[in-house]
Nucleic acid binder design. Sequence first.
DNA 1: TTGCGAGTGGTGATATTATAACATCCTTGA
DNA 2: TCAAGGATGTTATAATATCACCACTCGCAA
Lengths: 142, 142
Amino acid sequence: MTRDSLIRALEAAESHCTERGEKLTPVRRRVLELVLEADAPVKAYDLLEALKPGPGAAKPPTVYRALDFLMAAGLVHKVEALNAFVGCSHAHDDGGAELFICSDCGSVEERHGAPDPVNMPDGFVIERSVVEHFGHCANCRH
Amino acid sequence: MTRDSLIRALEAAESHCTERGEKLTPVRRRVLELVLEADAPVKAYDLLEALKPGPGAAKPPTVYRALDFLMAAGLVHKVEALNAFVGCSHAHDDGGAELFICSDCGSVEERHGAPDPVNMPDGFVIERSVVEHFGHCANCRH
DNA sequence: TTGCGAGTGGTGATATTATAACATCCTTGA
DNA sequence: TCAAGGATGTTATAATATCACCACTCGCAA
Ligand SMILES: [Zn+2]
Ligand SMILES: [Zn+2]
Ligand SMILES: [Zn+2]
Ligand SMILES: [Zn+2]
């Protein structure tokens, strides 16, 4: 992610929060920035490390609170199978995204609007879906 | 799961392992039994507790090794979003299953053969997919 | 102005989930 | 008999996540 697009993403996040009547506070903004800067899913404790140099050394709850907020706002997604987090440039409030994660380079592509499963159990109503595909991206195929 | 079907599942698991040239040892068998008995995804440390009464009190590695083995054999799946495990009655060696998990009662239904995603990034090759749907089963709809 | 209350973040402790590293035991077959 | 591999036991620790409590700030109403 280039410097410019990072700045644009942060501005978009700012107004996205405002629209929701919420505040993108400095801590939250900094965490989002770190997640967006990373070129692969990033771990909570790596964020913690990255925040250390700042004035108050951050503790775990600080990071997890920020991540919870950002996830609720649709600005960050959790990769469940990795216990790691990725930035989202779409800012969609609906929970679900379909993630394609390259096991070689760590790059993550996000897609939306997957159709409902074909073979759903009778009467089941989906509330939230976790869909994570692991494999090799076009750049990493040998 | 009834007593009878539990026994049948264990027998099937036994022969499934034999076919693969592997052994369903007592620890592994016991862990599989516990997972199959549960009517909801079960946590590793709950298994650990359940194994305690036995002769040698089990330690974490024991449980995780058994789970690793059972997952490799396709007898157990991990629910990534819950850090929990469910038994599989299909014994499919290919990694992927599509899970429908009721947030009310914890019941899990498994389906297979979901079609490839429609909107895949260009050139991406999927190796393993995690698909977990959370919602409400037919019994729990209000 | 004063005081309340919601929201936010700091802090120390702790809970939960998972693995590393090494020792022991047991089978199997040369 | 002995070696090799695999399965398990054991101790410790790493990695991930939450709890409980306090302090600060801001907006707002009495
Ligand atoms: Zn997204
Ligand atoms: Zn790649
Ligand atoms: Zn299965
Ligand atoms: Zn249900």
